[in-house]
């Protein structure tokens, strides 16, 4: 009957745990963690189902299809793991609830529009950058790669600027 969710981990604890998880991934696989690579493969696969000829002819998606099943990859299993780990964590801590998360003044319609547009920008950005916050920012940053820090600089600069422009959506 406990209705209140368990508190989040303190940032220092969560950060240290995330760093150890990342280190384990490096030691097992030789590379870090990711997420957008899966989205790319999923998009190539969906595109292949919808328009096989067009997708095979496409310079970006084509190689994923001609190489075989786009989703047959380590990153697919990693993403399935993320879904399992996140689900178990949220359920066991009472932090799982069906909702449309939005600012107090935002309508559901506006929230969905922003989520879609934001997702599309992230989809394009992830392909341009060849990775996302996990693959480039976190994993690249941990190897002290210049690429990781260039990405993080762009991420934080645009985050602050755009956040100021869409402040009403969250407050």
């Amino acid at each position: 009957m406990t209705s209140s969710p368990r508190p989040f981990w303190p940032p220092l604890v969560a950060g240290a745990a995330l760093g150890i998880a990342l280190l384990i991934s490096f030691l097992i696989t030789g590379h870090g963690l990711g997420a957008s690579g899966f989205v790319t493969r999923l998009s190539a696969q969906i595109s292949g189902w919808l328009a096989p000829d067009l997708t095979t002819a496409n310079a970006y998606f084509g190689p994923f299809l001609t190489a075989g099943a786009p989703l047959a990859s380590w990153i697919t299993w990693e993403v399935i793991g993320v879904l399992i780990g996140g689900y178990v964590g949220a359920r066991t801590a009472g932090r799982s609830r069906l909702m449309v998360e939005r600012g107090p003044q935002a309508s559901v319609g506006q929230r969905f529009a922003f989520a879609f547009i934001g997702g599309a920008l992230v989809g394009i950005g992830g392909r341009l950058a060849r990775g996302c916050t996990s693959g480039l920012g976190l994993s690249g940053g941990a190897t002290l790669a210049v690429a990781g820090f260039v990405f993080l600089a762009g991420f934080f600069i645009a985050g602050f600027v755009v956040s100021a422009l869409v402040r009403r959506a969250w407050q």
């Binding site: 899966f38 879904l83 998360e101 547009i117 934001g118 992830g126 916050t133």
Partner: peptide, 25 residues
């Protein structure tokens, strides 16, 4: 491309509320 991609992901995160990994969570 990486600077532009970082900017787009920062912008999309501020609007959409997530990045790829956190959206799965």
């Amino acid at each position: 491309a990486m600077a532009a991609g970082g900017l787009l992901i920062g912008a999309g995160f501020a609007m959409g509320g997530y990045c790829p990994g956190t959206s799965l969570v």
